[in-house]
Amino acid sequence: MIKRELTFLVALWKANLLAAMEFRAAFISQAIGMFLNDAAYFVFWIVFFDRFQQVRGWGLSDMFLIYGLVAFGFGAAVYFFGNLNGVADIIMKGQLDYYLALPRPVLLHLLSSRSVPSGVGDMLYGLISFFFADQLTLDAFARFVLGALFSATIFIAFMVLVQSLVFWMGSVQLLSMQVFNALLTFSIYPTSLFDNSAKFILFTILPAALIGALPSDFVRSFTWQKLGLMLIAAVIFLSLAIAAFYRGLRRYESGSAIQTQV
């Protein structure tokens, strides 16, 4: 069963890559553009720590790590599951019909039927950022990849969860945009900046700390507790997302729109 779905997923990714290669120049320019974009944004932290050296124990190398991990995880999420930010829009426009008519898991098919080329630039930037984070060991790199995997999983799950509200609310475009922005904004900041009530929010209602701070802490020093926490969080958010999506799907009404999937 799992093997079958994995084969399907790999076939989809292959098809997405082939489609992107048809517009090779656009693909490459978006990937390079995003890489430069990430690098340019990071100049802020270089300037900041050049002036202030350390803030509550956080220095530039910590920022390289958290920023790299979030970029790598986010890049992987939007490259391999490129529709993660378009779920609500597809449902609202009645374009789910296409996926419902095919004998594959609807949510998985929906999420992975598109690739965002700029994700490659994010992943590449994330890797390079990791190399500047003073964590150059094979162990740390393995933890970086694992941490980014959890980060991406929680990010995708939370976006699906929020956008599934569209089945009940009718339109969640602005809400999902705000959540998307907030998740990205908060995930690249160290939790030591925030007070306890804010930390509580960032570990639960808006799980940005589970996407950035916790995995990057896990890369710095391994403990079973951190690994367990990331695993539990990923399982909980993924289960909630799947449950919300399929529960909402029962309320879905087709718009009978004629569509083509290119």
Partner: peptide, 14 residues
Amino acid sequence: ISAFEWIYQKALFI
């Protein structure tokens, strides 16, 4: 033009 937009936005940021 996305790539140019991103770079311009970051130029404004920094």
